[in-house]
Design a protein around this nucleic acid. Structure first.
Length: 425
RNA sequence: GGAGGGAUGGCCGAGCGGCUUAAGGCGGCGGUCUUGAAAACCGCUGUGGGGCAACCCACCGGGGGUUCGAAUCCCUCUCCCUCCGCCA
């Protein structure tokens, strides 16, 4: 959430920032509730002060009519306190609900735009190569090679599920291990294996709730929710902690499965493995001091870019305009790999600086000096990378005229030396 | 799933319903002493909120209740520990 102080002090700036997002937020209601809350709070506190002082006095008094009279009076004061507290509680609950609905505000450097069609492409590395034949989309290539089975995926779990088999399954596993090793040994991340089921509180903390409730799977009996991204457990890893300044930045890399209902994408990308209900992802995550977060954002884009570079597949970096920032990001970039068979740029990574938005929701702070007041950290996340789409890009870019697929050189050590994936005879 | 035990400040650990404004200790910070350090002694040592100054309010795992007054009594939930059952 954003800082209530900011809403209180500069409501017009907040309103215009939310306009740029193309979003809506109950700013007027928040201002009213905030004012009501403070007025009530002062009344309640002065009554409580009276009760505390009088009760102490009663404790010291001998039995007698005077003491009884004070006790009687305090009964009345208590009644009043109870009534005011009830009202205060209601207002605070409503205020919190309203604050949780306010999206993060865009950083001043983010270009204003209505939607994704206005996202500028910042740069591109490598040109799509000439194949000399018509490159196949992965949904044809995979089944022909016997490494991708849609029918059996549907048999097991319904639409948007598939089975990877043989060299296909191994290729994904190789990608996961290689990416994690790259981030851990070359980019300074600490590997984390987090739970894929988390409490509802974690969903609010990471900003998945309240907006994306329809897209989340959850257990009907327990308070356990399936993560749509490792960003969720990683955000909450340090919930309610006060970190030391010299610990920062904390950099984590995690491999997890991700689960999404895809209710918002009904009918879109139904072919292939581009958008499923379950997919794997390697995620990068950082906790930084506020003044360092924008340098860290660029750093994560580079870390994700290194993956694309090493795979020797054309990719580009796209900046999200204000209208495409989503709920939690103040600034966001996407990385897209070229898929020559599908003939499209595939979003394989999304890199965001959430500033203090998630830290405020999860109460994650740090102290500059041992005596200093705790401040909220900044949090950043970026895919590094999403597996199915990376797999698509590898298969489609490395396909050969004879229908086989070469294994990218960097992956061969993780593939037991296999250099080429060929259809079983 | 069943039975029992527990949860108190950064840590350990006391706490008959009212001088608890949470004892005491450890650790940490500052000071005195010292050439310096140690020791000793003295003081300070949480978070959030409101006023934005003095100050006030809340917080003893969470929530609710009893009372003029709750760390303390009652209900409930969560987590941890021990044992039993089940289990990859």
């Amino acid at each position: 959430m954003i800082d209530i102080q900011l809403i209180r002090k500069e409501p017009d700036a907040v309103r215009s920032a939310i306009d740029k997002l193309g979003a809506e937020a109950p700013i007027d209601r928040i201002l009213q509730l905030d004012q009501d809350r403070r007025e009530l709070l002062q009344q309640v506190e002065s009554l409580r002060q009276e009760r505390n002082q009088t009760s102490e006095q009663i404790g010291r008094m001998p039995e007698g009519p005077e003491r009884q009279e004070l006790i009687e009076r305090m009964r009345g004061v208590n009644l009043k306190i109870g009534e005011l507290e009830g009202r205060l509680k209601g207002i605070e609950a409503e205020l919190e609900t309203a604050l949780y609905q306010v999206p993060n505000l865009p950083h001043e450097s983010v270009p204003v735009g209505a939607d994704e069609s206005e996202n500028p492409v910042l740069r591109q590395e490598r040109e799509p190569k000439e194949f000399g034949f018509r490159p196949l989309p992965h949904w044809e290539l995979g089944p022909r090679l016997g490494i991708l089975d849609f029918e059996r995926g549907v048999k097991l779990s319904g639409s948007r599920f598939y089975v990877l088999k043989g060299a296909g399954a191994r290729l994904q596993r190789a990608l996961i291990s290689w990416m994690l090793d790259l981030h851990v040994s070359q980019h300074g991340y600490t590997e984390i294996y987090p739970p894929a089921l988390v409490k509802e509180q974690c969903m609010w903390g990471a900003g998945q709730l309240p907006k994306f409730a329809e897209n989340i799977y959850r257990d009907a009996e327990e308070d356990l929710w399936l993560i749509g991204t490792a960003e969720i457990p990683l955000t909450n890893l340090h919930r309610d902690e006060v970190l030391e300044f010299d610990q920062l930045p904390l950099s984590y890399a995690a491999y997890t499965p991700c689960f999404r209902r895809e209710k918002f994408s009904a009918g879109r990308d139904v072919r292939g493995i581009k958008r499923g209900h379950q997919f794997d992802k390697v995620e990068m995550y950082k906790f930084t001091a506020p003044e360092d977060s924008y340098a860290a954002l660029e750093r994560i884009v580079e870390d994700a870019s290194d993956v694309c570079r090493a795979l020797e597949i054309p990719f580009r970096v796209v900046q999200m305009v204000t209208g495409d920032l989503g709920f939690t990001a103040a600034k966001k970039y996407d990385l897209e790999l070229w898929a020559p068979g599908s003939q499209e740029w595939l979003e394989v990574s999304s890199v965001s600086n959430c500033e203090a938005f998630q830290a405020r929701r999860t109460n994650i702070r740090f102290r500059r000096t041992p005596k200093a007041k705790p401040e909220f950290v900044h949090t950043l996340n970026g895919s590094g990378l999403a597996l199915p789409r990376t797999l698509i890009a590898v298969l489609e870019n490395y396909q050969q005229p004879d229908g086989s697929v070469l294994v990218p050189a960097v992956l061969r050590p993780w593939m037991g030396g296999i250099e080429r994936i060929e259809a079983a005879p």
